[in-house]
Design a protein around this nucleic acid. Structure first.
Lengths: 348, 348
DNA sequence: TTGTACGCGTTATCAT
DNA sequence: ATGATAACGCGTACAA
């Protein structure tokens, strides 16, 4: 917690004044020559200044620029844990877009259950980034209102905010396709001949999970199917949770012909449970996941039926729409793409 | 590539001047009152200033502070791809330590093959962070000298650098236990009765892979074992690469009793190949991985024999040692822990 | 087209 | 112990 004892005194880096002197012009002329959009300046001088800058290896001092202009060239990305593959995928797309816009991405983590969230946001407010992008995990097991309050202060100061998730009504909203994707997946499975689906979802007040479940129900209703639901605790949305849930499902609901998991990781556990029970994956009981994570893809490729959530566009949309001067009132719902693969073969 | 067209003009946030006015003191007094280490100031004034700051919800402007002091409270983390689980794990530990030191972590990606690395570093140089931490992937399939050159400029300006990896001789060095860990793993397997190991490694000039291979050879020599080596292209260090390599190994080298993969992901593929060949994993042919990734652990827990590389400490070591005023000359080699699990059962 | 002068918010130096 | 004032590096209105 203590501030670092000996803040490094940087040796004076090359400054704009140095460039100006070397080019034989005033500082302001040098500044203008190096500003891309500037026209009223002679080509000769522009060239001289650029040459000087290059030979001195000059870099603009962002801090100074920020104090001068009031805007900072930073974009802050807040995740709960960067190690979470889904968060990482979205964060990656934000960084890519940010870099393309000459913005410097910063990443901060709130820690488990969003514990350090408020502290992190306070720190970020000191940095005055152009925008703060909040990436929420699909399972949100904590209260987001303290963070929302801190964010609203940032907004009052003119900051832009985008939320990838559903918990806060603040700034630009980008939500993954939890509902429509679920409906389409269910329809797709019905088309492949499945009639007794059991879905594994999570308890708690997660909006994403609620939507997912509703989407599944809608899809089932469209095709006149009954749907069995198995609920696991939020903390069990991993391989082990999927494994034990599936094991019990196969004991208690033997008519089940497909297990649909709310995450790919759980689906991996489900597949293991089916194999360990001596059943054949697919013909006996099929498995579908949700999210189409690169990681799961790497592990199981090309095998697990899943729903691609277009995560790469999530970051793009979030950053673009919250930097957009016109505030798009409605939440942006991302696309999805059903990926029917070998884990759910067509049923005769 | 274009700069964002309309840099947001932030409304004037609360400034130190506002706080000073509200507290009825001068700006400099307010500044001192809010600086933790300051003594020569009356308790009453300190209290008034803190109250004013709190009621106005004042936040220090880091940019202004940076222009004034010349040091910036930032730590930059450079990875090639944040989605890589190994990089993410290390980056996570850096962010945790950085936050504890009141430093703001920034993450930037170099893109595939380090393509945007130089550009990113140039941008970071504009930010003048306290330190830049480079996290290299174990398989380095590109030339790092352009980045090294850019980094050396940063160092000349007084910046601190740490490299988690082996490719650059610059700043503080932290290297994962590629060699000793490999030796220990091989010994551990020999103890469990394995006598015909085949290792799957990657070609190219990766230092990490070279060390790993040497470590394996050392371990094998200690126990008087012969070692078979299978080399795959760098680009094939994934599940599919492990799968097809193992398939061919089992055809051509039927005496193999354990396949040791240079990564957990490849090991997952290897396990699938063994099963698909109708063999029993373990008794017929065993499999070991390397890295003990959380991800692989989640997918296979508690199953795959692997070597834990103490990634959580990597970030800590990197940041701490490069901020340390005394430059530790020797590279820091991290610990490892052999995890012998069910995928390599004791052989009778 | 170019230079002068001032402001951004903060810390550091010198008085008092 | 406190306050006035000068820096820090850069952008920019204004003047030339």
């Amino acid at each position: 917690m203590a501030a670092s004892k000996t803040p490094t005194k940087h040796k004076r880096a090359v400054t704009l004044r140095d460039v100006a002197e070397k080019a034989g012009v005033s500082v302001s002329t040098a500044s203008r020559a190096l500003t891309p959009g500037f026209t009223r300046i002679s080509a000769a001088v522009t060239q001289r200044v650029h040459d000087a800058a290059q030979s001195l290896d000059y870099r603009t001092n962002y801090s100074a620029k920020a104090t001068s202009t009031g805007s900072s060239a930073f974009v802050a990305i807040v995740v709960s844990d960067i190690r979470d593959p889904l968060s990482a995928e979205i964060a990656h797309s934000v960084t890519a877009v940010a870099t393309a816009h000459d913005l410097v991405p910063m990443i901060a983590g709130t820690g488990p259950r969003g514990g350090a969230g408020v502290q992190v946001l306070r720190q970020l407010r000191s940095v005055q980034p152009e925008a703060i992008i909040i990436i929420e995990p699909p399972i949100l097991d904590y209260d987001t209102s303290p963070m929302a309050e801190e964010l609203s202060r940032y907004v009052k100061e003119g900051g832009r905010v985008a939320i990838v998730g559903d918990s806060m009504e603040l700034g630009a909203q980008v939500t993954l396709s939890w509902q429509a994707g679920a409906t389409d997946l269910m329809s797709g499975l019905a088309n492949r001949g499945y009639s007794h689906p059991t879905i594994i979802t999570a308890d708690g007040s997660s909006t994403a999970m609620r939507r997912w479940r509703r989407g599944m129900e809608t899809g089932a209703a469209q095709d006149g199917l009954d749907i069995d639901t198995w609920v696991v605790p939020c903390s069990q949305m991993d391989r082990d949770g999927g494994y034990s849930a599936t094991k019990q499902i196969m004991k208690s609901r033997q008519s089940t012909d497909v297990v649909i998991c709310a995450s790919d990781i759980m689906a991996i556990g489900a597949m293991a449970a089916i194999r360990d029970a001596g059943l054949t994956l697919g013909p006996d009981v099929a498995v579908a996941g949700y999210g189409n994570l690169v990681m799961a893809d790497k592990v199981l490729h090309p095998y697990l039926t899943s729903v691609d959530l277009d995560l790469a566009r999530a970051g793009d949309q979030a950053l673009t729409s919250c930097l957009d001067p016109d505030p798009a009132a409605d939440p942006i719902v991302l696309d999805h793409r059903i990926e029917l693969r070998e884990s759910t073969p067509t049923r005769r």
